[in-house]
């Protein structure tokens, strides 16, 4: 069995990700289309929330992935910081826009869902507000990557930003709990809860979560490949200029 670190070699990563990509994206499309179709057409309305319950198939997966993408970026940044594998830094860069879009989807679907249920588009509820702050963190992180010319310096600076941002994201989360009691319900999918959402909603929801996850995986592989190519292009052009 070979070591995981072999994939830190860009050539090896390109070969493996190229072989994986069609499968992952195929599965992602299958799960997303299947899950959303199942949720949209084949599930009953909730007796209290009516048809708005269908928004859950977008809202919950996007929200789960919005947080996990940041975690993945944190891990990738740490790997870059400790082991200096370029692919890792580029993967973190590639993931950030995906995370930002997922966060935006979670916020938007939440607003559209909140309007009929709570009677307001936006409520300064701790959960909503912490997602808004998470969105700002994503924007800052992306802007930092764009602003620095030297790619290694950009990778290092965004790593520091990601570490500090993660700490502050957690602090903000608890500060917001202190600040305001919310309208948002508690976790509806925890493993230890006795009462989760009913099975009819549960299976399509899990399919959608898998779909969002696979979509994220496919996009990160794909975008990391682009970043590796862009890095190589940059190096070649720099060589030509000095030659």
């Amino acid at each position: 069995m070979s070591s995981l670190w072999e994939y830190a070699n860009p050539r090896k990563f390109m070969a493996t990700s190229g072989a994986l990509l069609p499968w992952v994206s195929g599965l992602a499309v299958l799960c997303l289309v299947g899950g959303l179709f199942w949720g949209f057409f084949l599930t009953p309305d909730d007796f209290r929330q009516g048809s708005t319950v269908k928004i859950i198939y977008l809202h919950v997966p996007a929200a789960i992935m919005a947080i996990n993408v940041w975690l993945m970026m944190l891990v990738a940044s740490l790997i870059w910081l400790i082991r200096r594998h370029h692919v890792s830094a580029l993967a973190a860069k590639a993931a950030a826009p995906v995370g930002a879009v997922f966060t935006a989807i979670a916020l938007f679907t939440g607003a559209v869902w909140g309007q009929p249920m709570w009677g307001t588009w936006w409520e300064w509820d701790p959960r909503l507000t912490s997602f808004l702050i998470l969105f700002l963190f994503y924007l800052g992180y992306i802007a930092m990557w764009e602003a620095v010319e030297n790619p290694d310096a950009a990778a290092d600076l965004t790593t520091v930003l990601c570490l500090v941002g993660s700490v502050f994201a957690v602090i903000s989360r608890y500060a917001l709990l202190f600040w305001n009691q919310g309208l948002h319900q508690g976790a509806s999918l925890s493993m230890d809860a006795e009462q989760n959402v009913a099975d009819v909603f549960w299976y399509p929801l899990v399919t959608c979560i898998a779909g969002f996850f696979l979509l994220f995986l496919a996009l990160v592989l794909y975008r990391t490949r682009t970043e590796i190519r862009a890095r190589r292009l940059r190096a070649l052009l720099a060589q030509e200029r000095t030659a």
Binding site: L136, F137, L139, G140, A143, L161, G165, F168, A175, L176
Partner: peptide, 13 residues
């Protein structure tokens, strides 16, 4: 853009 989100907890408290 980078610093303002980090100021959120201080501002709240």
């Amino acid at each position: 853009l980078l610093v303002l989100p980090l100021y959120v907890p201080s501002l709240i408290f």
